[in-house]
């Protein structure tokens, strides 16, 4: 058994036997995914429901459009009451050839939608009744736009955040506890190179990140959450690796400064929490003010998020990896270099 393999094995065992770490690496971020996923839900896909009274070709066609759902009522007064009470955005009352539409002034968006659909249907039927060949034809086509359903940006965001947690905490706490318990000393007194120790620790972190990726994506793909991956999801793997090394370097820096595990946890949280919010983990950063978006560019998590979104749910190809990868590599090198300079074997 080589030193590299047995050190990695020792760290994996220590990791799997520590329930607290497992919780913070897997369950804790997963809780956020579940809570946000259910809270924000899939509101965009609900059809608008309106009250309907009477019958005839207008109501039949309206139902066939599939754009609105009709809730039938026996008389106009009850339907009107529903709109007055704010239960439904509009009521359509058909009596003979007369189509009357009542809509609530409060919800302009819903009103506009309903008005547009109903008048479209009425015009179409009129046209059919007049027996005139249509002069203009409408060719409608849906495109995948850049704005995403909540689960589509939550999954990459929370996954990146979880990887930043396990990367920063993993390396910082290992370093502090090994220094405090003099394991670093023991290693220094053994004929094993620092590179071996470091690479085995990084490898364990990368393995953890991949496991997190699999678990998170699997949960988000469940029908309740409804994540839809686009073609080249495997392009996320290089981002997982590079993101892990970047956050590992941050953890090394934190670990070099802190003497106790408590101090290291605190410092790691101070780094991670603002970074997570400003990097678009829980909501798209495009909604933030412009200056804040500029500020968020200094965080590696921001770039990891962008890259993850592009390859996991926006269907972009390998070209979308270029900028995030370059930023993460540069970040790893710079922070890693600083951390190596201030690294201490002993207190």
């Amino acid at each position: 058994m080589t030193a590299f393999r047995s050190l990695s094995a020792a760290m994996v065992k220590g990791f799997l036997r520590d329930k607290m770490t497992l919780f913070f690496v897997f369950l804790f971020p997963l809780m956020f995914l579940v809570v946000f996923g259910l809270l924000l839900g899939d509101s965009g896909s609900d059809k608008t429901k309106i009250a309907a009274v009477g019958d005839g070709p207008v109501l039949t066609t309206l139902e066939q459009t599939g754009a609105i759902e009709l809730e039938r009522y026996g008389d106009a007064a009850t339907a009107r009451q529903k709109v007055d009470d704010g239960d439904l955005p509009a009521a359509v009352v058909v009596s003979g050839d007369r189509v009357r539409l009542i809509y609530a002034a409060s919800d302009q968006v819903a009103a506009g939608t309903v008005l547009g659909i109903v008048s479209g249907v009425v015009d179409k039927i009129n046209l059919g009744a007049a027996n005139v060949p249509p002069r203009f034809t409408l060719d409608a086509q849906s495109v995948e736009d850049a704005s995403l359903k909540p689960i589509q940006y939550l999954t990459p965001g929370i996954l990146s955040w979880a990887i930043s947690i396990s990367g920063v905490f993993g390396s910082a706490l290992t370093m502090v506890s090994w220094r405090k318990k003099q394991v670093l000393r023991r290693i220094r007194l053994a004929p094993v190179s620092t590179t071996t120790v470091l690479t085995s620790r990084v490898l364990v972190s990368i393995g953890t990140a991949v496991a997190q990726g699999v678990v998170f994506v699997a949960v988000a793909l469940l029908p309740v959450f409804g994540l839809k991956l686009t073609g080249q999801w495997y392009l996320a793997l290089p981002l997982l690796v590079l993101g892990t090394t970047a956050f590992f370097a941050v953890g090394m820096l934190v670990g070099a400064f802190c003497k106790t595990e408590e101090a290291a946890s605190g410092a790691a949280n101070i780094v991670i929490m603002p970074m997570a919010f400003l990097s678009g983990t829980f909501f798209p950063v495009e909604n933030a003010p412009a200056w804040l978006q500029t500020v968020s560019n200094i965080f590696p998590l921001r770039h990891m998020n962008d890259g993850m979104l592009d390859v996991l749910v926006r269907g972009k190809g390998v070209e979308a990896l270029l900028v995030p990868s370059a930023v993460l590599i540069a970040f790893t090198l710079v922070v890693g270099f600083i951390a190596a300079r201030i690294f201490r074997w002993d207190d």
Binding site: M1, A3, S6, A9, A10, G14, R17, R186, A190
Partner: peptide, 17 residues
């Protein structure tokens, strides 16, 4: 090392040599 048994500690330290 954290959470390792007595035998695993010895195996891990031994492997460094």
């Amino acid at each position: 090392f954290e959470k390792l048994t007595a035998r695993e500690q010895l195996q891990t330290f031994g492997s460094l040599y």
